[in-house]
């Protein structure tokens, strides 16, 4: 099956199996390994990317469903020299430890800030319920999102 999509601003047309997932396309075909897989029941959020401007679990989107879509991954939001404000806030606030959940968490957090008014601590905690982190206890993630909110 042929899938045409834009990923991080670059156009791709790829031949993939009908049962390929978006996350497999990203990781295995485009070598964008920043998007992680942490579970098999669509619960952990490590695989969150933006598809047509919305945060989605790329492990729960078939590659075919992404045909024609504009996808942004963790690799597409900033670079080491020009970090996205959310990336910067995560580093500044020590909002990551092992780093495995971090790409999904950052992508979810960006979407949360972009789609919310009056984001306070409770709203951040509520808004991140789709992303599991086992290291940080969420404390510093919440601080980071609130800090990035003011810089985005």
């Amino acid at each position: 099956m042929e899938v045409t999509l834009t990923v991080n601003g670059a156009d791709h047309t790829l031949d993939v199996p009908d049962n390929a997932l978006l996350v497999e396309l990203l990781r295995e075909r485009l070598n964008l390994t920043g998007t992680h897989v942490g579970c098999d029941t669509s619960q952990c959020g490590a695989c969150v990317v933006h598809m047509d401007g919305r945060a989605v679990k790329s492990c729960t989107v078939l590659a075919g469903q992404a045909d024609g879509a504009d996808v942004t991954t963790i690799e597409g939001i900033g670079t080491a020299d020009a970090l996205h404000p959310m990336q910067e806030a995560f580093r500044e606030c020590h909002a990551l430890q092992c780093g495995f959940c971090t790409p999904g968490m950052i992508m979810a957090a960006i979407d949360l800030v972009q789609t919310s008014d009056d984001l306070d601590e409770a709203a951040v905690r509520d808004g991140l319920e789709g992303n599991l982190c086992r290291c940080t206890g969420y404390h510093n993630i919440v601080r980071a999102v609130l800090s990035a909110r003011d810089n985005m």
Partner: peptide, 19 residues
Amino acid sequence: VRRKEDVRFITGAGNYMDD
């Protein structure tokens, strides 16, 4: 001190097993 390892993790450049 802000962590040395963070830049690779927050930019998706970490090198985990499945990578």
